[in-house]
Design a protein around this nucleic acid. Structure first.
Lengths: 208, 208, 208, 208
DNA sequence: CATGAATGAGCATTCATTCAT
DNA sequence: CATGAATGAATGCTCATTCAT
């Protein structure tokens, strides 16, 4: 029977998660903050309060830990894709959800960005990201298709193209952090996206 | 008289550029291929055929070399922003130009992606990127504004929002390489962008 | 009643030996295969199918386990020294026995070689090996002495010198594995030894 | 032009050898003293008085350094094989030379022993050792053959077998350090070898 | 300008050993 | 008896940087 967290002699207070989960969480945070370039196993172990050898007990190689972090990030992100209600409402909710997420957990987007770049050199990560990408694209295309059928969107609209545009715009908005210094750009982009889709009246202004 | 490049004992044929320029070019290529994570000064010096100490003669610190690479990349990118002709044509040309550039010099986008992520941790890079970003945004907004005045675009259109959307979509398309495995997404995005702007008839299909 | 070996959940079939004996046997095998340089307690425990902590229950320190392996190897080797019959026959049998042993249990010689080298740095092992060495030497000297008395060997022969030569030649033959690639050297050596002792006619050839 | 030793800022006095040679020498000494098991690059660098990174500057991998040590040891050993004079005298000189060498440079035999054992797991070392072994064997066989022709040795003698016996006995004597505690064994072995070859009268005693 | 040699600080990984359960 | 979890102390190796020539 594994020792319970409470009986652990470690002083540092921690949520009642396993050491393994704590390591993944710490690696996730470190990756968001320092990128792959600055991802140090010792730093991760230190953040959790365990010896570096303990990290290697759970994840023999750094790569194994990274893989777990990828899984963690993907799960976090995919959880934002589910929704309910009318398609047009779901689209609006998706945009709004990402906006909120970017404020509450900016780490997720930083990690996604790192993974996206690393995917160019790591086929394993590329495959995983592609799967998430496809799911995202398909989810949006289905929503647009349904909204069009419901009459909420113009019949001339092409669901695939629209979905591709949305995904690209959201990636460009959230994964490329340069614009974060100009938050109005983010809003402009999203509003324009909603306007282009007819989800928002053209006369509506952000700050009346 | 100092020895000219041609009298140099280095065998590797090189354009008549200075060692300094060669180093920046090699660093640019290395950054595109291996990212910041795998950027090694020895590798760069080796690619140019000079001793590592020579690299440090021109760029005392790695950071200095990186800064030069940033400048190099920015210059390359900004050169794609200039154009002439009717605004609507210029917009089309901009899209087409990027499409071509992504095929002819994919390195530029890889480097831009790396810089964009690093900007989150490096204020100096962030500032430079922001300037380019602003230029890009302004150029597009001006074009849209002019096109609207010319009657080529709907009067209801908001130049700022459209520009933000275009920039975001292009960033998401070119700087995030995941989609590269599904090249049709790239085209879908660009076509949809053109359609949304009325630059392309809705009935126009890529492959009739 | 304590659980017997047979009720153990370990799947790997094992002779009805104690865990302790199994550990010594596994360590013996590992030492033969990887040498002291590659002797890993985890590997040994893994081969037996027990936890590394269990190994340390039986052998608090790696050194303790090694000591047991030394004892095991010595016992194996000394068992080859006993014999019966006429001295000359015993000598022949000893040579033949080692030849067979080197084919059937090459591990023993590998381990002996490792121990012999380590003896230079480990007085405890040196003492044990010296004892075996003395026994070996004395056994041979006694045989030679008796054979000489029996008239089977030349009266001029010096038992001590002959014994030392035999031991040295056998060590050089069996403990130094380089020659293993030239198996004929091994036979040449043994035949020559037998010839020198008059145990084999000079005209006898291995391959007529 | 490489900096001369004398201008080096290192305090530790050293023979006027290159850093590279000093590293090989230190590795040789360390290997003799601690065996492969205890061979530490940091220790070697420390003995020479250079940083560990300097060691890796000359020998990128530990293996590379070991290879140089093997070459060094082989050169040392082969230098003992050359001789001049009558074959019988050369044989006597060879024995005497090894006896002296074992006193003056016991490290060589310790290293040879380590290499011999490691050869079982390292084909590269095995190949090198085999070559030296063959040279040794051939040199001795040729001497014996010549001595036989000169009438210094019995016509019945088989040069190949005798050479194999000599090599085995010398290996067992010098590479297996156990007997070093009983130095008389070493002499007994060598004397017996000489007697067996007729190089020494049977009545000759070391200590009358 | 250019280089060979050298280094300090650090990195992922390993391994025998310990301990609460 | 036996184990999962954890650790301290290395170990081979890397990399940007320095410096005398």
């Amino acid at each position: 029977m594994p020792a319970t967290r409470t009986s652990n002699r470690r002083v540092r207070a921690r949520a009642p998660e396993t050491t393994r989960e704590a390591l993944v969480g710490a690696a996730y945070a470190q990756l968001a903050e320092h990128g792959f370039e600055g991802l140090r196993t010792r730093e991760i172990a230190g953040a959790v309060g365990v010896n570096i050898a303990t990290l290697h007990y759970y994840f023999p190689h750094k790569q194994d830990l990274v893989r777990s972090v990828v899984g963690h990030a993907m799960a976090r992100f995919r959880s934002t894709l589910s929704g309910s209600g009318a398609p047009a409402d779901q689209l609006r909710a998706h945009f709004e959800g990402l906006r909120l997420l970017s404020r509450k957990e900016p780490q997720l987007f930083a990690v996604m960005g790192e993974l996206a770049l690393r995917a160019a050199r790591d086929p394993a990560i590329a495959a995983i990201l592609r799967k998430t990408d496809d799911t995202w694209h398909e989810t949006l295309a289905a929503l647009v298709r349904q909204a069009r059928k419901d009459g909420a969107l113009d019949e001339q609209i092409e669901p695939e193209g629209i979905a591709a545009l949305i995904v690209a715009a959201l990636k460009g908005t959230y994964l490329i952090p340069v614009a974060s210094a100009q938050p109005e750009r983010l809003d402009q982009t999203l509003h324009q996206l909603e306007r282009s889709l007819g989800l928002r009246r053209k006369t509506t202004r952000r700050r009346p």
